[in-house]
Design a protein around this nucleic acid. Structure first.
Lengths: 172, 172
DNA sequence: CTCGCAAAAGTTATTTCATTGCAAAAACCT
DNA sequence: AGGTTTTTGCAATGAAATAACTTTTGCGAG
């Protein structure tokens, strides 16, 4: 199966300088501001816990398990129960700010405002743990055609590819 | 999250007459014979347990959890530990005979011989629980193009769509 | 045939992920 | 402030997957 939470965290620590992690701080700040705007527009509340969860996801930009997040939020505050993290994640996913990677039992922040009618694929690097979020009109169309041909009315699309990102291939 | 094992089983029981279930017995018999041939060709053993797991998946053609399978295999024999089922599933998946639906934490038999370079999408009906396995050259190409453009070397592709199948839409 | 090896299955326990049910607190709205 | 809704806290449990180790089985070489 997917790697364990502990492995994921260690992985992250040892690979912090991978291209995927570069500039995430700046992007995170902007994305967070945008998330606040979105929540205001939706008339929902980005509470401290939700905000902290989202921020953690943004700054790592690597898939984190719910228990990883609980651990990451602990320092400086009190111990956070898993259910609290799950509730925050549910909220963020509902608002299109986060995404569950089914193949990893892990969660990630979305940088592109989840245009829900589009097909978005997640490319998960097995080496550096980084995730790229890609959409293309070709993919969206192809999926739409496929579903139409089958008469299938889609509710949720899970498009996840694991493998090796370009950067990690270069690095052998 | 995905429905629990118990719900899944009850679901199956109450929806046994859905179109997805029709004719599965005949197909299952043929598929099983073919599976035996494949294993012989690969020089691996389709042991009784593995065979029974595969058969159960074939005859339901609905996603089953590992614990569902353990339960399903029990009657007539002795209690089977989860790990045994997981080992059988690992084997079947390795041989391209079964597939894990990551979004459901469940497993299903594959009818099309896993041509591993092709992109295969799984359409999962939320109403009847049936799963359709679809491939198209367009999908395969689109995915290949997308991955090429990103310089991403794919290892495993997870394409799962949940929604409503044509039959269940007709039935309102 | 039987010895010995490797593959498979058994056993028991544990880890990881996710949810349930109910109580307390904080935010919002007059 | 009073009442409502939303959010969070807390304890326990359920569900999925794996770990470590032993026993059994299949099968080829001597």
């Amino acid at each position: 199966m997917a790697r364990t939470a502990a492995e994921r965290l260690q992985h992250e620590a040892s690979q912090g300088s991978c291209a995927h992690a570069v500039r995430q701080e700046e992007k995170a700040a902007r994305a967070l501001a945008q998330a606040e705007a979105i929540c205001r527009a939706h008339g929902v509340r980005l509470t401290p816990i939700r905000r902290k969860v989202l921020e953690t996801l943004y700054t790592t930009h690597k898939p984190l398990g719910a228990y990883d997040l609980a651990e990451a939020l602990e320092p400086g505050g009190r111990r956070i129960a898993p259910i609290t993290v799950y509730r925050a994640l549910d909220f963020l996913i509902e608002q299109g700010l986060a995404h569950r990677l089914a193949s990893q039992n892990a969660y990630i922040a979305t940088f592109q405002g989840d245009s829900s009618h589009e097909a978005t694929a997640f490319l998960i690097c097995e080496e550096c743990g980084g995730v790229d979020e890609v959409t293309s009109s070709a993919l969206t169309e192809t999926m739409a055609n496929l579903l139409n041909a089958e008469g299938f009315r889609a509710h949720t699309k899970v498009l996840e590819v694991t493998g090796r990102c370009a950067h990690c291939q270069d690095a052998h």
